[in-house]
Nucleic acid binder design. Structure first.
Lengths: 199, 199
DNA sequence: GTCTATATTGTGATAGAC
DNA sequence: GTCTATCACAATATAGAC
């Protein structure tokens, strides 16, 4: 991977992730990379191939993170805390990835989901391991799939909806927005644990 | 509003909401409405104006729903139940609206949020009224904005992410997907109430 | 009001000089 | 490897016949 190629990839990531497949032209990418349009085809053959490279990058960063933690040996509540913490950290570094992925899976639902499954992610194993037998007396009865969806919803949605939340909830006040973001990790963790632990 | 005009609007709603602004061409809309391309411009002047009409429709259906319930006189737990119920019902009827709105606010964050504020939605009032003084002894201390974001996240995100959830969680098995959808309303309500009530 | 025809610009992609 | 020039096509939009 030479210098030009990686500059193209960086520019493509920025453009595709911010503006989607349809919202990005090859000219946009070439301009952002400060190179000629033809070089995009020289290195990546077509817009679709270039997009695939970016999409795989985003998907791999976004989804499998949670899987490794969930199948680990840690206690249930530790795993909840770790998953939320890891996810929020990653989202703070890549706040546009949720919208990018959500939008593109709506345009083409089959391929991205297949890619994930192929990459070694095993949902059945994750759910079977989510609430272990010896921990069931600490936890209210809950379907592990609903729990998983709840956790991901609470982590991811605020990033996908951030322009609306920032305006409606905080009138775009940057201090209040930052405060909200910093509180969020602990807030979600407590919310989930209160929702499922027997007290 | 004559017959042609409303057929254009219906077709535009379907196309724009499913495929977004960039993903929809005037030709797509004309084909879906079974009329000529020029008539779109005759009735709506430009693609942008036509899109605005559709976007306002979606936004008004999607957001203010929750506001009316939240400022009502019902008890706290009743309001939670009602909001979740109303939201899920509306989402079942309009499952593509979340992605449509989320995507377009990312492309143009300012205007849609402004539209909402102008339409009489008053977030400050909503939050002040969310947890009333006389109800605070029933509820764990929680920031009303975090609570509000949590509720909306739990309701909306599964619809935005449905192609991925359906594949990864249910291997696209339609029976399991339907079962999950039907359980969801009660599941969310219980999850929220457990998270915040003092027991 | 509805159509055909067309103007104009932008798109992804390729050929070929260097 | 990198550029210019150019292709074929699709996009939004408009002019003008009926």
């Amino acid at each position: 991977m030479n210098k030009t190629q990686s500059r193209i990839l960086d520019a493509a990531k920025e453009q595709f992730i911010r503006n989607g497949l349809d919202g990005t032209s090859m000219q946009n990418i070439a301009d952002a990379a400060a190179i000629n349009k033809s070089l995009l085809h020289y290195y990546f053959r077509s817009k679709e191939k270039l997009f695939d490279a970016v999409f795989n990058f985003a998907l791999q960063r976004f989804i499998p993170q949670i899987h490794g933690i969930m199948v680990s040996d840690e206690s249930f509540f530790s795993r909840i805390k770790m998953v939320v913490s890891e996810y929020i950290n990653m989202l703070d570094e890549n706040p546009f990835i949720p919208m990018f992925i959500l939008h593109e899976i709506h345009r083409n639902p089959q391929r991205p989901a297949d890619l994930l499954i192929q990459s070694g992610l095993d949902p059945a194993l994750t759910f079977k391991n989510l609430i272990r037998e010896d921990e069931k007396n600490l936890i209210r009865p809950i379907d592990p799939i609903h729990l998983m969806v709840n956790i991901i919803s609470l982590c991811v949605f605020p990033y996908a909806a951030s322009p609306l939340i920032n305006r409606i909830m905080f009138n775009n006040n940057q201090d209040n927005i930052s405060k909200f973001r910093e509180e969020r990790k602990e807030e979600i963790t407590r919310f989930i644990i209160n929702a499922i632990k027997i007290c």
